[in-house]
Design a protein around this nucleic acid. Structure first.
Length: 611
DNA sequence: AAATGCACGTA
DNA sequence: CGTACGTGCATTTT
């Protein structure tokens, strides 16, 4: 019946209507209750859903959703104008965890729906995520590309919906926007099957269903919650950093007797290597580097005041930039809502954008002050941070099954001290801080494919000493070396690496004739299982933490993930229970050969809660 | 206007 | 000659 009405509505000579294997109707054309009966008719069959619009920024109503069924019939809805009965029907369907549904981008859809009080509960397939898990070497997962690749046809376009992220639904006499939306929903539904087949063929079905889709739901909650900012404090910082920028710039100009754009590597090279005739630094593609390491080195040699001011300027301008970016990101609710990208990092890590909250300074005292600007929100008791200590080293111990490294973690002794005592043949108590620093650098470097040359550079020791250090290390921890070489060999044979949960990374360059590309791929192959497995563990922990918070009916919530750290906002009276729950869930996220150690901090700001 | 390179913050 | 990211500025290319 609905289909007949749709047919009547669309102009017969419209080419777009024929190329789309579905027909669209805007909700303003629906009689009340039509949507409900349409959905009821299709209960039990898989539907495809696509959402276009701006979910969080720029108003929650400026978006649309389209749903398609097996026959290619579809409904495009402008939720700004949908009537209450239909909204209710849609909500009931979306909130049914058993409803089989394929969504193009479930996170965006979820945000958009939340804006109208609807919850996307059951998602069978997220085509974006499935495509990511099928093709982690392919960096774009555009619905149009997927349609060409899997369905061997073009995704119909024709309206300007993509560019501004909005669909022009409900306009009198023009249903092109609705048709585009419908076409996308139809494609989504058709894509579900081939994507599921691909997922299964690489053994990623469980990873998708039990990790990626559940974690997607937690990301929606985290992004919506955001983290509170102390705007007045951060503005104060901005002023301070601003003054520091000015001061350093004036100092630099004075040191050379004229002004120069301190942000221009090209102009800096002119000053440093021509005007001041300083010794040449490392080469870059376009000249000589002016990075911080090189400048510090030049400063040590020449003690020229320009360099000190330049370094101070670099730091200050960076801090000002970070702080101003944060201020610009504060939403009307006084909080910063980042976006977590789930289909970007090749290893399976998350990334954070707009703003990136995974690279807030911590190492320098000045930068660390920025973390004081992230504070507990109104109605909550404090922020709690929980991080895994040395998770990548523990993963390496687990994967390599190296007895020495496993003993190190089981002993409870300080890791680098323990390893140092074995490498240097001394008692743990006799490991000096210099020895410990070398061991620490080497241990972390191993997971990145560090060479003896690289180690010598980083530690400022001779190549020979670095080589000896690595030999001594592998004498004691031979299992680690065997694992690292083995994992590369296996990847070369299979074509991919794999994490503890079966996430693959394909590395075709492992057999490249080009030595540089091949060796790069080898380091990636060595690192991907370690970094990726750690990412798996943290994702499982996030699901465990949010799940347990919900089961217990707690009001505390997860706000951020920074690779091996979780940040939560704790509701009044829940601190003890949440601390306990977080420790338990994070500790139980994976059963490794070694224990997972979690350290927890609490305070009013991210800085106070940090370690 | 878009792409590239450099520099630098985090894990 | 150490992995994984995102961002902003300057510079080059289109």
């Amino acid at each position: 019946m609905l289909r007949d009405r749709l047919l009547q509505m669309l102009p017969e000579d419209d080419a777009a209507a024929e190329s789309v294997e579905g027909l669209a109707l805007t909700v303003t054309d629906l009689a009340p209750g039509d949507l409900g009966s349409w959905l009821a008719d299709r209960a039990g069959q898989e539907l495809g859903l696509d959402v276009a619009g701006r979910a969080l920024q720029g108003g929650g109503d400026a978006w649309a959703v389209a749903i398609a069924d097996e026959s290619g019939t579809s409904v495009a809805l402008d939720l700004a104008t949908i009537d209450d009965a239909d909204l209710e029907a849609l909500g009931a369907w979306l909130a049914d965890p058993a409803a089989p549904i394929a969504v193009h981008d479930a996170k965006t859809a979820s945000h958009a729906l939340h804006g109208r009080g609807l919850t996307l509960a059951g998602v069978a397939v997220d085509t974006l995520l499935a495509a990511y898990l099928c093709h982690p070497d392919q960096r774009t997962y555009d619905l149009g590309d997927l349609t060409v690749r899997y369905l061997q046809r073009e995704l119909p376009t024709g309206v300007d919906a993509e560019s501004d992220g909005m669909l022009d639904l409900g306009l009198d006499g023009d249903h092109s926007g609705a048709r585009t939306a419908a076409a996308r929903a139809v494609a989504v539904r058709e894509l579900a099957e081939p994507l599921r087949t691909d997922l299964a063929s690489r053994g990623a079905t469980a990873l998708m269903a039990q990790v990626e889709l559940p974690v997607l739901a937690t990301l929606v909650g985290m992004e919506r919650a955001g983290i509170a900012a102390d705007v007045a404090y951060v503005e104060g910082l901005a002023g301070e950093f601003d003054a520091a920028v000015e001061r350093a710039a004036l100092g630099a100009y004075e040191a050379i007797g004229h002004e120069v754009n301190l942000g221009s590597p090209k102009q800096l090279q002119e000053v440093l290597f021509v005007e001041l005739d300083m010794p040449k630094t490392r080469r870059t593609k376009t000249g000589w580097t002016t990075d911080a390491d090189a400048l510090a080195d030049l400063f040590a040699r020449t003690e020229h005041p320009f360099l000190g001011n330049l370094l101070a300027h670099r730091e200050a301008i960076r801090l000002r930039q970070t702080v101003e970016g944060l201020l610009k990101s504060v939403a009307p609710d006084g909080r910063i809502h980042t976006t977590f990208q789930q289909t970007v990092a090749a290893t399976g890590r998350l990334s954070s954008t707009d703003p990136n909250l995974q690279n807030i300074p911590i190492r320098t005292a000045e930068g660390y002050r920025i973390r004081e600007g992230f504070v507990v929100g109104e109605g909550y008791e404090g922020l709690l941070t929980a991080d895994y200590s040395q998770i990548e080293m523990r993963i390496m111990a687990h994967l390599s099954r190296d007895e020495g490294l496993i003993d190190a973690f089981r002993s409870g002794e300080d890791l680098h001290r323990y390893v140092g005592s074995r490498v240097f043949h001394v008692e743990p108590a006799e490991v000096t801080s210099a020895m410990r620093a070398k061991i620490k650098a080497m241990s972390y470097g191993l997971a990145y494919g560090l060479s003896a040359f690289g180690l010598s550079k980083q530690l400022g020791i001779s190549a020979g000493e670095a080589k000896g250090l690595m030999d001594d290390y592998f004498d004691r921890f031979g299992g680690v070396r065997d694992y690292l070489t083995g994992v590369v060999d296996e990847a070369r044979g299979e074509g991919w690496t794999s994490t503890i949960l079966g996430r693959r990374r394909y590395l075709p360059d492992l057999t490249s004739d080009n030595r540089q590309r091949r060796e790069m791929a080898e380091r990636m192959a060595l690192n991907a299982p370690i970094q990726g497995s750690a990412a798996d563990v943290v994702k499982v922990a996030m699901i465990g933490v949010t799940g347990e918070l919900e089961r217990r009916g707690l009001a505390s919530r997860l706000l951020l993930q920074v690779h091996d750290e979780l940040v939560l906002e704790v509701a009044p009276g829940e601190r003890e229970e949440v601390t306990d729950l977080v420790r338990t869930q994070m500790g139980a996220a994976a059963a490794l050969e070694v224990p997972l150690d979690v350290s927890v901090g609490f305070g009013r700001s991210w800085r106070d809660a940090g370690h």
